[in-house]
């Protein structure tokens, strides 16, 4: 293959696209639909993960110290050093008493000397932390009496997130296969329409690579077209959705902004390019 032949390949690819314009439009439409489906699952998974992380950050661990333990600061430093711990807040027993008084609606529940409440640390976690492991590590620190956290809640949350992720990824994989299948089938039509041309090319001495190139470029152009359309539709649709939900956004904190759009467009373009190119290579193979 020579570099100077490249314009020929491009010309042939575009010629074929325009000559079979109806088929090309149909291919782009099908790729667009397939990529839309892919994008929807992609957004679903991304948001699920995002919500999961937000929820995880709500998980708090309370670490109660032994009565009258002398070095609460050392414990605090050790707690802050644990991986997955985002914030450490010290709640001295006096504050605990005020809190309890507020709940019970009584004043001067304990005098300063006979306050039976322990000193306490409140830990907030990062989105990916493992509460059970942190609790275990915290409990083994010297001076720690008891560690309390919402075990049932975290277990439930973890289950829901894992389930959602598995379902989402399975669906995503299925759409990926579906996209590939659709693209191959569509491109196969354009290749089939030109099988005679392929045969003659080969009979007059064209190499397989030479035959493949225009089809490869054609597939890439079709894939890119589909990806662009799907990107526009999805990002516009998604920002419309966000706008509609904006009044509830405190309750449904969906991912927003350029980050997710950029990731989405990148993923769709990569899919479109790969599948367009691979699909056409795969389609030509049987005629070589």
């Amino acid at each position: 293959m020579k570099i100077r032949t490249f314009p020929y390949f491009l010309r042939e690819a575009f010629r074929s696209l325009f000559r079979n314009s109806l088929l090309s439009l149909a291919s782009v439409a099908i790729i667009t639909i397939a990529l839309l489906l892919f994008g929807l699952f992609f957004l679903f998974i991304a948001n699920l993960q995002h919500l999961g992380e937000l929820a995880w950050e709500q998980v708090e661990i309370r670490v109660f110290l032994e009565q009258g333990y002398k070095n609460p600061q050392t414990v605090g430093q050790q707690l802050a050093a644990l991986p997955g711990v985002k914030n450490v807040t010290f709640i001295p027993k006096e504050e605990g008493a005020i809190f309890l008084e507020k709940i019970l609606g009584e004043k001067n529940l304990f005098s300063a000397e006979e306050n039976p409440l322990p000193d306490c640390y409140r830990l907030s976690l990062t989105g990916t932390a493992e509460p059970a492991a942190i609790a275990r590590q915290a409990a083994s620190l010297p001076g720690v009496e008891e560690v309390v956290y919402g075990q049932a809640f975290t277990r439930f949350l973890r289950l829901v997130l894992r389930l959602g992720l598995v379902v989402g990824v399975v669906l995503l994989c299925l759409t990926v296969l579906g996209v590939l299948y659709l693209v191959i089938n569509t491109i196969q039509l354009t290749v089939f329409a030109r099988r005679q041309e392929i045969e003659i090319m080969k009979l007059v001495g064209a190499t397989n690579a030479f035959v493949r190139w225009p089809f490869f470029l054609e597939g890439i152009i079709l894939g890119l077209g589909g990806a662009m359309l799907a990107s526009v539709l999805l990002t516009k649709g998604y920002s419309f959705l966000l706008q509609q939900l904006s009044s509830y956004s405190r309750f449904i904190p969906l991912l927003s902004g350029n980050g997710i759009n950029r990731t989405l467009i990148l993923a769709l373009t990569a899919m479109g390019l790969c599948f367009g190119g691979l699909g056409s290579l795969f389609s030509v193979r049987r005629y070589l």
Binding site: M1, K2, R19, E197, E199, I200, G205, F210
Partner: peptide, 24 residues
């Protein structure tokens, strides 16, 4: 014959040179 119906006479012949990468 094995001519390509959608190419002109000229293109049908030049095709044989193009696919073997003859200088344009």
């Amino acid at each position: 014959f094995k001519l390509l119906p959608r190419k002109t006479v000229y293109e049908n012949v030049s095709f044989a040179l193009e696919v073997i990468e003859t200088p344009p």
